[in-house]
Design a protein around this nucleic acid. Structure first.
Lengths: 261, 261
DNA sequence: ACAAAAGTGTTGTCGATACACCCATGG
DNA sequence: CCATGGGTGTATCGACAACACTTTTGT
């Protein structure tokens, strides 16, 4: 489908000049978590020629820090700026890359990738996970060939290569870090209610939590500001709105939520 | 010092054929922890031509998994087989490699590394940390030019490039993981006493712990076997010897020491 | 005024801490 | 036989879980 003939400029560049511009054999892949309708979701892309969904990923420019590269990929894809972004694992199986994916893509323009081209060599990838505010994400339509979706964490199928394993590891990491990092700021809107925050935690942990104990615990971390406003429009009693106390939040990100052992 | 003239075969190979054999632009570095005389130490190497200490590191063979590569480096350097080995972070600053280190080394044989040789390009490194039994380590004398030492964790100076930062991050990781992973098996001899194990924990955490509570806690994990033997020769009452229950230990490694949240 | 959802308070339990006592060994 | 260090027991405290009651809002 689409234009079968003209190879887009950026793909031509990638094939021919990519090796000059990027580190070869290494990439970044981002597991971008968002929260919507009480579901934890991740952002996935699809290329027409490949019938599987893929994590947003990219290469590392020669002069770029890997965290920068991940940040750039994230911004290019989501337009979001204020993000929680963290590397969590390196995936380094020698056979994890699938050359046929690139081959098919270029084949659709009638081009065959040369045998030793850098694109179809072995690739190691650094997994990053990101937490973004679902409502802030505006997918850039620049990449014409890319479909995208927020996929529910529960139904992960048809992911490309080892991307399902990458997501799995990201989830594990997120669950572990939840215990000692103040997660929530980047997944929720600026203002949110305690029940909303709780739903987020419950979704991530896949477990029901006690309303009252949850509230006490979160407040004890002392990273939230209670606003005077309340959430109106709800069917019943209005809930207080909260926002994160930026200063205390940043401190908690560094030091963790507990004093260690 | 040493043979100033003949370039050793393996160095020649590395320079000329390295790019065919190894992934370029990516390496592994191992922070190898050992415990001796109530001190936590790490294994460091030094090359004659460079006056700084370095972490044992290496390249990744084209067909090799990165964990394999780290394992191979570890075995090549220490001869140890039963090891705890885990990746913990990727260090990807664009300027982290220092070409002059390689230059000096080859210069000492009268050779100048060609401008675009793979060795002096940018390198990203995957940090692994390993826990080994100090007494089992027999440094391989194969690398003629390498001096080595166990350096005390407290006095880290003169480390090469960003290796001090790598060690720092490894230490943080170790401390964090101590809370939910059964560490000790690989740092201690097969048989050990409870006070010895405690000293290890105290050293890693840099903190004094209560003797009785420590014992209760460790025993509650149910990963130790108390042996009938006791540690004789001590100035006073003989302590029981313990060993790790391999089966339960492996399970705890997977599941962690607590049930999570 | 009633149902639904949110805010606040109380109690019990279990694990962690702190401390006291007993036991074995070498000098 | 006593000093030293190791093994075992117990009281206290605090965090967390379980649960009850009150308050607010829309219909």
């Amino acid at each position: 489908m689409s234009t079968k003939n003209v190879l887009p400029h950026h793909l031509k560049q990638l094939l021919e000049k990519g090796e000059d511009q990027f580190q070869s054999g290494i990439s970044v892949d981002c597991v971008i978590f968002g929260f919507h309708e009480q579901q934890l979701k991740i952002l996935l892309l699809k290329v027409d020629t490949v019938h599987k969904w893929a994590l947003p990923g990219g290469f590392i420019k020669k002069t770029e820090h890997i965290e920068e590269a991940a940040y750039r990929v994230l911004q290019e894809r989501t337009g979001v700026k204020d993000i929680f972004l963290q590397q969590f694992h390196v995936f380094g199986a020698p056979d994890r890359a699938d050359a046929s994916i690139h081959q098919k893509r270029y084949q659709s323009f009638g081009i065959k990738i040369p045998k030793n081209n850098w694109l179809i060599q072995r690739f190691i990838t650094v997994g990053f996970y990101a937490l973004v505010d679902f409502n802030e994400v505006k997918i850039q339509p620049s990449e014409q060939e890319a479909q995208w979706q927020w996929m529910d964490i529960e139904y992960l199928n048809g992911l490309m290569m080892d991307h399902a394993a990458i997501v799995q590891k990201a989830l594990e990491t997120l669950r572990t870090q939840l215990a000692y990092l103040p997660i929530g700021k980047n997944l929720l809107p600026k203002k949110f209610t305690m029940p909303e925050l709780q739903k987020l935690y419950e979704t991530i942990l896949n477990e029901k939590l006690d309303r009252r104990n949850f509230q006490r615990k979160l407040l004890s971390f002392d990273i939230l500001n209670r606003l005077t406003e309340t959430k109106k429009g709800g069917a019943h009693k209005a809930a207080y709105l909260y926002s994160f106390n930026e200063k205390k939040y940043q401190k908690a990100l560094k030091d963790g939520l507990y004093g260690s052992w």
